[in-house]
Design a binder for these strands. Structure first.
Length: 159
DNA sequence: GCCAACGTTGGC
DNA sequence: GCCAACGTTGGC
């Protein structure tokens, strides 16, 4: 199987470092964390339909003093139900989700390494990254695709 | 804490 | 199925 449909793809995943930073992910067993709390259908569908084990992930810190890319990770599992949707004490509880037909999914993300913080400001300054989805105005999606050339460029900036 | 942008909800 | 109101995200 070598057609382009099966090529490795790349993603940017936002995490609030207060909840799960790149350090937290690296400290987890097997450096792997369940990506809990996605409550947006578009992001869920990316996980369910598009993301494959081994896909590259930019681990992005959001809602924090220094937002930006903080590490490199990879997709480490297929999707399964996100258990927090059924936990009434969880911030991510969803009373409308039927356990027989879970509305929200998660997948495992394996942290590979921490990088220097490539800040949002620095990303914006790079003309080569002009089409990076996370830089687009009004973007709020917690999972966005990164094209291969932007991925390459970002790894270069992180060297 | 502000607020722009965007997704979701629910009345009709 | 429209769309106004409301809630959330997330940088600043």
């Amino acid at each position: 199987m070598t057609n382009t449909k099966d090529a490795r793809r790349f993603w940017l995943m936002k995490s609030e470092p207060d909840e799960c930073s790149i350090d937290d992910a690296l400290a987890a067993p097997k450096s792997t964390v369940p990506w809990t709390g996605v409550r947006n259908y578009q992001a869920r569908n990316f996980m369910r339909d598009e993301m494959k084990i081994g896909d590259g992930v930019l681990f992005y810190h959001s809602s924090c003093p220094e937002p930006g890319i903080a590490g490199i990770a990879e997709v480490a599992s297929a999707t399964r139900a996100d258990p927090t949707q059924f936990d009434a004490r969880s911030d991510y509880f969803d009373a409308k989700s039927d356990p027989e037909k879970p509305r929200w999914l998660l997948l495992d993300v394996k942290a590979l390494r921490k990088t220097r913080l490539l800040s949002l400001a620095e990303l914006r300054e790079d003309p080569e990254l002009a089409d990076l989805t996370v830089l687009k105005r009004g973007n709020r999606l917690s999972i966005t695709e990164v094209n291969a050339s932007d991925w390459k460029r970002i790894l270069q900036l992180l060297k």
